[in-house]
């Protein structure tokens, strides 16, 4: 037998005695049962937390997707692509991806996590977040989370704020705010206060009866129109739509909004010519002359 083989086959020294002696002299104790329970529970807790945060992210993404003012996107953005790029909740999609990975990782690191098949791990982590996210969305939790964060965290832009920013652009013919009062001396316009505190005269000539009713309710509304070139703080109103962020979203209301928008455009019977549309895009919705034609050439929404 070679020395190498002899060494490899050599019986370890009296290991038993050495180990028992070491345990006694170093007073080594087994970790308690509680230690293992806490450790195992911690991993499961992290899994539950990642699933819950993933579900919250799903519910906010759903809320944002439903409530991103898609119903009127033709009035606020040159194309659906630009609209999506500006309004998609990328932060929450990122949180969602991180939580999916965290859920997967935590479940894999539970005591028996390695035994579960990939589909089971995916179904139980990612699937649970999605299913719970839909439930949260049905309970409007996404709306509350988004609105709460928007109102209490300066660096967080809620859908409410994003939509406000998108709609509070007087030079582009959009205002967000509410009716203040009528002026007894003049007919044909009302005073309107925008979300930045600015006061506007909004002309009523182009508005449909239901829009006048909506405007006069005093609730927050969105107004589309164009700025008068000769009078400061005057907006020629072309359409009035409710502001929907003061309560949890209702999908049927949004559908109704879109129907109303389409119907409104058809009532005006002024389809947009492709040439105007192109010019409008190129000039970035700021050109006075084009703004004057805003009501005449308002983009027709796709059905």
């Amino acid at each position: 037998m070679s020395e190498h083989e002899h060494n490899n086959n050599a019986k370890p020294r009296d290991l038993r005695a050495m180990i028992v002696e070491r345990i006694e002299t170093e007073n080594i104790k087994p970790h308690s049962w509680w230690y293992w329970l806490v450790l195992d529970s911690a991993v499961w807790t992290l899994w539950v937390v990642s699933v819950l945060l993933g579900a919250l992210a799903v519910s906010v993404v759903l809320f944002a997707s439903v409530h991103m003012s898609f119903e009127l996107y033709e009035a606020t953005h040159p194309s659906s692509y630009e609209f999506m790029m500006e309004t998609l909740p990328f932060l929450w999609l990122f949180v969602l991806a991180v939580m999916f990975l965290a859920g997967y990782y935590n479940l894999r690191h539970t005591k028996h996590g390695y035994r579960y098949s990939l589909p089971l791990v995916i179904a139980s982590s990612i699937g649970a977040s999605i299913a719970l996210g839909f439930l949260f969305h049905a309970l409007n939790i996404g709306y509350y989370v988004d609105t709460f964060l928007g109102r209490h965290m300066p660096m967080y832009e809620s859908q409410e704020h994003m939509a406000g920013r998108s709609w509070q652009r007087p030079t582009a013919g959009r205002l967000m705010g509410h009716f203040i009062e009528t002026d007894e001396n003049t007919e044909g316009y009302v005073w309107f206060k925008d979300m930045d505190g600015g006061e506007w005269m909004v002309t009523l000539g182009e508005l449909a009866p239901r829009e006048l009713k909506l405007l006069s309710s005093g609730d927050d509304v969105r107004v589309i129109g164009f700025m008068a070139t000769d009078t400061p703080n005057m907006l020629h109103g072309c359409g009035v739509f409710p502001w929907l962020f003061d309560k949890p979203p209702v999908l049927s209301e949004l559908r109704e909004q879109r129907e109303m928008f389409i119907e409104r455009m058809q009532e005006m019977d002024r389809p947009l010519g492709e040439r105007i549309k192109e010019e409008f895009r190129e000039l970035g919705q700021a050109h006075d002359e084009l703004l004057e034609h805003w009501c005449d050439h308002m983009p027709m929404p796709a059905r």
């Binding site: 180990i19 080594i28 087994p30 970790h31 005591k111």
Partner: peptide, 28 residues
């Protein structure tokens, strides 16, 4: 782990770890 001395050291560490973790032995 080919060297017998290393092997004994590693074995000792293994058994000490086993002893420390005895309560964590998963009976499944």
């Amino acid at each position: 782990v080919r060297n017998p001395d290393d092997r004994d050291d590693v074995l000792q560490e293994i058994f000490v770890k086993v002893y420390r973790n005895l309560n964590g032995f998963d009976e499944t």
